[in-house]
Write a protein that binds this DNA or RNA. Structure first.
Length: 437
RNA sequence: GUGGCCGUAGUGUAGAGGUAAACACGCUAGGUUGUGGCCCUGGAGGCGAGGGUUCAAUUCCCUCCGGCCACCCCA
């Protein structure tokens, strides 16, 4: 019986790594550009953190968390998302004592017990950002801008922003009442799933996938109409800033979607999602929102916050779908080919070259032809050939594997060889032939 | 969690109730004496797992596992 990886997990093989590094470096670069600093929190937390943060009732807690009891009898949960942990860290480490808002980002695996599909796995990875300690609409716009820059940095096109405002808890009660009444009046037109949803989470009926519900939802009361006062100013300021963003990036577009909601109580005001224009089922690339009540719920002093999370697997899927080319990794500068019985001289030479910062691989002990082929298949820039003859004469043969590569002899001495290899490289770069290496 | 489609070497595909399961790419070894890519010739490697029907199953049936799709949910 062979071992298999657990359901919904993936091996990220060397051939996939270029995509991952591309995404990671874009994320770090964009975060840095906006002044967000990295934070890492544990992969698991007390179960109660997520129960509080997410709400006991939901399916999330009921069936989607990886929870278990550890040897000490504590209930532990593999983190299903990043926000709760970051907020816990903010409270626990007294981050409110520094300049506010605290701007942080994370790149981390998340765990959810789900039925897998493409872009939906049990262990997935997220890039997320949080800005905690500032309730102004400018920060909302900043987060949305950051998300935009991130997607753009990946080269992904044809993405649009959907957004909505959920108002504040006070106004929301009225809204949910009216919404509830509206759908209850039309309950006979709702499919069974949505009638159940109506009882559990009226807001969720809005983003139902059933066509008959969608028609109803379009005419349902809109949360925007229930926001007033500061919340309304906040919303209008945000829209103004987004218009400005649009004037800077012509590709940027947004659409107010009255049916965009969140199932969790702690979200308020701004909610948003980026998705491809031709989005199918698992389409959302990045989703975020404001969660001003959360830190209070978690036991901290009331502190506003906003952030987003974005699944890296989905981004890579989308990049592949859009046929974006990501450069693969380069081969080594040198493969050392050893001929005949040269003892350990070849291995010593490889060490010496690495000591001189030349990336070097020692070819496996095979025929010369096989070693050459090996070097070629690795995409090596040069081979350094070392045999009895070379040792006798105190030289090595260096051959460039470029199309029109030549061969020359250099003193058998790591430093001289390293120098020669570097010269070769600069010459190639000068020619522009190795610009993509 | 519900319903559906699917599961043949590393990858992509072909195949038939019955002796050696095919092809391409990839991997590997050679094509004489120390030179890669192209070409030629070899080699390794497989019917997801378990059970059942049958004289005989990779092929039919069941269960499980896994993938994909839709739903539930989606922090």
């Amino acid at each position: 019986m062979n071992f298999k990886r657990p359901r919904g997990t993936a091996d990220i093989l060397p051939e996939d790594q270029p995509h991952w590094s591309h995404v990671y470096s874009a994320a770090r670069k964009v975060a840095q550009q906006f002044g967000y600093q990295r934070i890492d929190t544990p992969a698991f937390e007390d179960t109660s953190l997520f129960q509080r943060g997410v709400g006991d009732e939901t399916d999330i807690v009921q069936k989607e968390m990886y929870s278990f009891e550890d040897h000490g009898g504590d209930s532990i949960t593999l983190r299903p998302e990043g926000t709760a942990s970051v907020c816990r860290a903010y409270i626990e480490n007294g981050l409110h004592n520094g300049p506010q808002p605290v701007r942080v980002f994370y790149l981390a695996p998340m765990f959810r017990y789900e039925r897998p599909q493409a872009g939906r796995v049990r262990q997935h990875h997220q890039f997320g950002v949080e800005a905690i300690g500032d309730e102004s609409a400018e920060v909302d716009a900043e987060i949305i801008e950051l998300g935009w820059k991130y997607i753009a940095a990946l080269g992904i096109k044809n993405v649009t922003l959907r957004l909505n405002t959920l108002g504040d808890p006070e106004g929301r009660a009225d809204y949910i009442n009216d919404l509830d009444r509206y759908f209850t009046e039309h309950a006979d037109q709702l499919p069974v799933v949505d009638r159940n949803r109506l009882e559990r989470a009226p807001l969720r009926v809005l983003d139902s996938k059933a066509p008959e519900t969608q028609a109803l939802a379009d005419a349902a009361p809109k949360s925007v109409d229930y926001v007033g006062g500061e919340s309304k100013d906040h919303w209008e300021t945000l829209l103004g800033l987004l218009d400005n963003l649009k004037s800077i990036y012509p590709e940027f577009s947004y659409r107010i979607d009255h049916r965009l909601v969140r199932g969790l109580d702690y979200y308020n005001r701004t909610v948003f999602e980026y998705e491809p224009l031709d989005a199918g089922g698992q389409g959302t690339l990045l989703a975020g929102g404001r969660y001003d009540p959360l830190i209070g719920i978690l036991g901290g002093v009331d502190t506003p916050g906003i952030g987003f999370g974005s699944g890296i697997e989905r981004m890579i899927l989308e990049m592949k779908k859009q046929e974006l080319v990501v450069k693969g990794s380069n081969g080594p500068d040198v493969v050392v080919v050893a001929l005949g019985d040269v003892g350990t001289a070849a291995a010593r030479l490889a060490m010496g070259l690495r000591a001189s910062d030349i990336s070097t691989i020692l070819a496996p002990k095979r025929s010369m032809k096989a070693q050459m082929r090996y070097a070629n298949n690795l995409g090596a820039a040069n081979v350094v050939i070392l045999g009895d003859r070379e040792i006798e004469q105190g030289v090595v043969s260096i051959k460039s594997l470029a199309e029109d590569g030549g061969q020359s002899e250099v003193t058998l001495d790591a430093v001289s060889i390293a120098e020669h290899v570097r010269l070769n490289q600069t010459r190639c770069v000068g020619n522009g032939t190795a610009g993509d290496r």
